[in-house]
């Protein structure tokens, strides 16, 4: 094993100091070292989006970033976003529209959808589909996921 590296970062608002193996990617660090198993590992090469987490405010692939690169970073996982109530509307819409079956892709879908909603642009269904294209779902056929995101976007716009 290579020399372990010290990292200090914020995960869901709490400061974490750990020693990490340089080759360990961020999602493995979150799941194995911190027990945050809401971020899933599907393909582990950046195709499926199930491992999505937020680093310094932006959604990224947790399998395509090393834990050792997150020294000083602010990381948010689906657990933190759920606790903060940030995805409450999206989660309600996913339930209302049956936008999940097995739920494996759902944390990544919610993180990506939350970023789309936060940008506050009204998108048509094709645009929502394009924006979500980096997150693969093998159950729903996507229609219900698009429904849910569209529902939240329309509600947001009504408020504004």
């Amino acid at each position: 094993m290579a020399e372990m590296l010290p990292i200090k970062l914020t995960v869901n608002g709490a400061v974490v100091s750990k020693l990490v193996d340089p080759r360990q990617h961020l999602t493995d660090f979150l799941r194995i070292d911190l027990g945050l198993t809401g971020s899933h590992l599907g393909c582990e090469h950046g195709v499926c989006g199930a491992c999505s987490v937020r680093v310094n405010g932006q959604v990224i692939r947790g399998c395509l970033m090393l834990a050792s690169q997150t020294d000083g970073a602010d990381v948010q996982t689906i657990e933190g976003i759920f606790e903060a109530g940030e995805a409450a509307e999206l989660i309600a819409a996913f339930v209302a529209r049956n936008a999940l079956q097995c739920g494996f892709c759902t944390p990544g879908m919610l993180l990506t959808a939350a970023e789309i909603v936060a940008e506050g642009k009204l998108l048509d269904r094709q645009e929502i589909r394009n924006e979500l294209s980096g997150n693969i779902c093998r159950c729903t056929g996507y229609q219900s996921i698009i429904d849910a995101v569209e529902m939240v976007l329309l509600e947001k716009l009504k408020e504004a």
């Binding site: 290579a2 360990q24 493995d28």
Partner: peptide, 11 residues
């Protein structure tokens, strides 16, 4: 899969 071992340098 997981990456094989390497040395990591933060330049």
């Amino acid at each position: 899969m997981k990456a094989s071992t390497f040395k990591y340098l933060h330049a």
